[in-house]
């Protein structure tokens, strides 16, 4: 199921915050993640999990080191190139659903496709298919305010998948849900991962959930250990 070329490669990746005192949130991280892998990142809070996510998600820039995504060095890219990568190659699921409140579930899922420049019809087809996939065929015209936490999170997952990204990033995607719903969402992610052979990287506090991943990355004080 996995081929050998890494889809993500970190070489001595370091992120330093200068906030009066120097603080290394990520310290010389080296890591290779292959296509189709389901990776869980665990570690105590402040260990650098989110920083790692944001760097891989191209939302933040490293202080030093190299980050290759799909074989391309993304650390030297312009805003336009990075936005383009975020749009086409990356999909995000956050702890809170972070849907656009003024748009319906369908429109939210269509949005990344519209940003990519796809036609409305095409975007609508894809979004409808994905919303069916996550079990929300009856809720497409509802706005986030009219949906439950679990439903919104499923819309967010559909949105993350809309541009068929190579990599899906989840920052505590089940952290804000009750255990039963959380398990359900997690199972959904795992199923989609197997179905579409996309790489999933999920930050979690939950050791039970982490144990179901292909690879577990532990972060302690900005240093990586892989299991």
């Amino acid at each position: 199921m996995t081929d050998e070329s890494p889809v993500i490669e970190l070489k001595n990746l370091t992120k330093v915050y200068q906030n009066g005192v120097e603080f290394r949130t990520l310290d010389n991280a080296n890591l290779r993640i292959k296509k189709g892998e389901f990776v869980a990142i665990v570690g105590p809070s402040g260990s650098g999990k989110s920083t790692l996510m944001h760097l891989i998600g191209l939302l933040d820039t490293p202080s030093s080191g190299t980050l290759l995504i799909d074989g391309k060095d993304v650390t030297k890219m312009s805003d336009k190139e990075r936005s383009g990568m975020r749009n086409r190659i990356l999909g995000f699921v956050f702890q809170y659903h972070h849907l656009l409140p003024d748009f319906t579930a369908l429109e939210n899922v269509m949005m990344p496709l519209l940003i990519a420049g796809k036609s409305r019809e095409k975007a609508k087809d894809v979004a409808e298919k994905l919303l069916k996939e996550v079990g929300l065929e009856g809720r497409m015209e509802h706005r986030p305010g009219e949906l439950s936490g679990g439903q919104n999170q499923r819309v967010a997952i559909a949105r993350a998948l809309s541009c068929s990204p190579a990599i899906v990033l989840g920052d505590e995607p089940t952290g804000n849900l009750d255990t039963k719903t959380g398990d359900m969402i997690y199972e959904l992610l795992r199923r989609l991962n197997k179905e579409y052979n996309q790489t999933f990287i999920v930050v979690t506090h939950n050791e039970d959930l982490a144990s179901k991943a292909d690879i577990i990355i532990r972060l302690v004080d900005g240093k990586i250990t892989v299991q």
Binding site: K80, S83, M85, R88, F92, L100, M111, I115
Partner: peptide, 14 residues
């Protein structure tokens, strides 16, 4: 929402 739009790939220009 601006942060989310950026995460979805909206450029600064957009």
């Amino acid at each position: 929402e601006i942060g989310i739009l950026k995460a979805m790939g909206t450029s600064q220009k957009s």
